[in-house]
């Protein structure tokens, strides 16, 4: 009989690289900002670009967060998520056009009230649509990825065409509310007011979402469900209901994001959701499927990088996102903060 191997535990402190590793994804955002600061010649244009990058990232995050949670929770991949963005934008913009009196008034309060009403209408409409989408289109194909992709893609096409039937094929132009037009000057940089509002809304939503997920019981169930659904069900929670709730909330968020994005671009088309889906996919993949934090970081990275690259080398802007995705997947094949284990 051989002797037991020698056991010599060491209590050495983990070295710097090891301690930093879990925080690396979070450090990426300031890192990208810093690189931008070095590469972009003037400080004021850097500030402008950074704010617009953050605004864009926040809006992408709002739209993408629902999708990543839906995937994490039920292993459902919704290629039709983009259509909620379009529907949200059309409903919201219609409401804003109806409230033209309020948006044209130079009062910030009335403007924000009109926007709030538009956002609520859009969120309600897309939430309801999300519920119907889940019932009719997604439910029959649980557990079959291939069919999910095909069927939700079909759903996207159908709803997109219905938008064209209802609102007509032309793009709709929309002006931002009066008080949100123009820019404020800060340290020599022109910062569009609307972008600042977008950053504020996005940040507020992210913090709320984090609070709900981290500090409330329903959040606990959702997080546990992402981690191990069967166990949660075995403990007596009806994950199906939770899932429908998350699906509806995710759709409503996408609709909200759609309104904000529509006002940001000042034009909406039926295909805008489908175009956004590409950025959303990139964000969801690099963030790690199922992770809200990863999605947030990914969205900020995409937004910042897109703005910096568009400034430095306009033609490369499109490739930059793909390049970012490739780089991150090479570094962490599961995405930055993987939650769901590869199946």
């Amino acid at each position: 009989m051989s002797a037991a191997p020698e056991h010599a535990p060491t209590m050495a402190r983990a070295n710097l690289a090891e301690r930093i590793a879990p925080w690396l994804p979070m450090l990426l955002v300031p890192l990208v900002m810093l690189t931008g600061l070095i590469l972009i010649p003037s400080g004021s244009s850097w500030l402008t670009l950074t704010v617009s990058g953050l605004a864009m990232g926040m809006m992408i995050f709002i739209m993408a967060s629902g999708m990543t949670l839906v995937f994490g929770l039920m292993d459902v991949i919704n290629f039709g998520h983009g259509v909620f963005i379009s529907v949200g934008a059309f409903v919201g913009v219609s409401v804003l056009l109806m409230l033209a009196g309020m948006t044209a008034a130079p009062s910030l309060f009335l403007n924000l009230l009109a926007m709030l009403l538009a956002i609520i209408a859009a969120a309600l409409a897309t939430g309801a649509l999300g519920w119907a989408f889940e019932r009719v289109i997604v439910k029959p194909v649980y557990g079959a990825h291939l069919k999910q992709i095909l069927v939700t893609m079909g759903g996207l096409i159908v709803v997109e065409q219905l938008i064209i039937v209802l609102w007509g094929p032309e793009e709709i132009y929309i002006l931002r509310p009066e008080a949100l037009k123009g820019a404020v000057t800060f340290a020599g940089a022109a910062l569009e007011k609307y972008r600042l509002v977008a950053v504020a809304v996005g940040l507020a939503l992210f913090l709320t979402m984090r609070f709900v997920l981290r500090r409330t019981k329903i959040g606990l169930i959702v997080r546990a469900g992402v981690e191990n659904g069967e166990m949660v069900e075995a403990l007596g929670y009806r994950l199906r209901l939770v899932f429908i709730g998350v699906f509806v909330a995710g759709s409503a968020l996408a609709g909200l994001g759609g309104v904000m994005w529509g006002l940001y671009q000042e034009v909406i088309t039926a295909h805008m959701g489908q175009q956004m889906m590409i950025l959303i996919f990139i964000v969801v993949i690099i963030g790690g499927l199922g992770s809200v934090e990863g999605c947030f970081i990914g969205a900020l990275l995409v937004g910042l990088l897109q703005n910096y690259v568009a400034f430095l080398e306009p033609k490369a802007a499109l490739i930059s996102n793909i390049g970012l995705m490739v780089a991150i997947l090479m570094w962490r094949p599961q995405g930055m903060i993987p939650v769901v284990k590869a199946k």
Binding site: H145, I149, F281, L318, V326, Q334, A342
Partner: peptide
């Protein structure tokens, strides 16, 4: 890049790459 992780990544990444190429 995609297939070694999971097959559904492939669907998303092809969509992204294809639209980038189209533009």
């Amino acid at each position: 890049f995609s297939l070694r992780v999971r097959a559904i990544f492939f669907a998303m990444i092809t969509l992204a790459v294809a639209s980038a190429v189209a533009v």
